[in-house]
Computed example of a mutant assay.
Amino acid sequence: MSDTPGPVPDAPRPAEEPTATVPTDAAAAAGTSANPRRRLVTFLVVLAAVTLVLDQATKAWALATLDEGVRHPVLGDLLGIQLLFNPGAALGLATGTTWLLTLVAVVVVVVIVRVSRRLGSRGWALALGLLLGGALGNLTDRLIRDPGFARGHVIDFIAYADWFVGNVADIAIVVAAGLLMILSLRGVRLDGTREGADDPAEDAEAEAEADGAADGARRDG
């Protein structure tokens, strides 16, 4: 007999710890949904900034060019240029409560900034961008113009017939209000979904339950 030792059996390998599965589909879906929302928020901010700059630039032009109260016709009696200092709201309403209008404008700005986190609709981004820019335009006047902080008079110079005199910020606010009305009538929500449409989260949950039931049936079979 040979004294050569036989092959030594391999030592048992330690059991591998189960690795945690990363929900790649869910992570990818979250990243995909975050990117469009980020673009919409960026669009909203840029639009608001452009509206604010345009509003303040035209007001600076009106201050440097026009004499207060003197009307310059543009389209006859329908449209003109006339510099006015408005202590109230549009149409001369709420005169003498400038501080309250300032507070309302601040609240509008804060609300828009907060709800923009759930933004998922291009229409809502357009409307809220115009509304934010218009609110900031008139709010700037109330904060920095005479007679004092939070009581400043808004500079108006676009005269519409004999109805009222407004500015670029007012135009942005009116257009935004019209867009918001249209979106509401069409049932478009802030996140881009529509009223009466199936909830995507509920659809995903139902689909997962259906897949689980199908797997169970295959195992039973």
Rank of each mutant, 00 (worst) to 15 (best):
T19C: 13
T21G: 01
V22K: 07
A26L: 15
A29M: 06
A30W: 08
T32H: 12
R37P: 05
R37N: 12
T42L: 14
F43Q: 03
F43V: 07
F43P: 00
F43E: 00
V45R: 04
A48P: 01
A49F: 14
T51E: 03
T51P: 03
T58W: 09
A60G: 12
A60V: 13
W61G: 11
W61E: 12
W61F: 12
A62M: 09
A64C: 04
E68V: 13
G69N: 09
V70K: 08
P73Q: 11
L75H: 05
L75R: 11
D77R: 14
L79F: 13
G80K: 01
I81H: 05
Q82H: 09
G88W: 08
G88C: 07
A89T: 07
A90T: 10
A90P: 08
A90K: 13
L91H: 06
W99Y: 13
L100S: 08
L101F: 07
L101K: 01
L101A: 06
L103T: 15
V106C: 12
V113H: 09
R114I: 09
S116M: 13
G120L: 06
S121T: 09
W124I: 02
W124G: 01
W124H: 15
L126G: 05
A127S: 13
L128N: 06
G129T: 08
L131K: 00
L132V: 01
L136H: 02
N138E: 10
N138R: 03
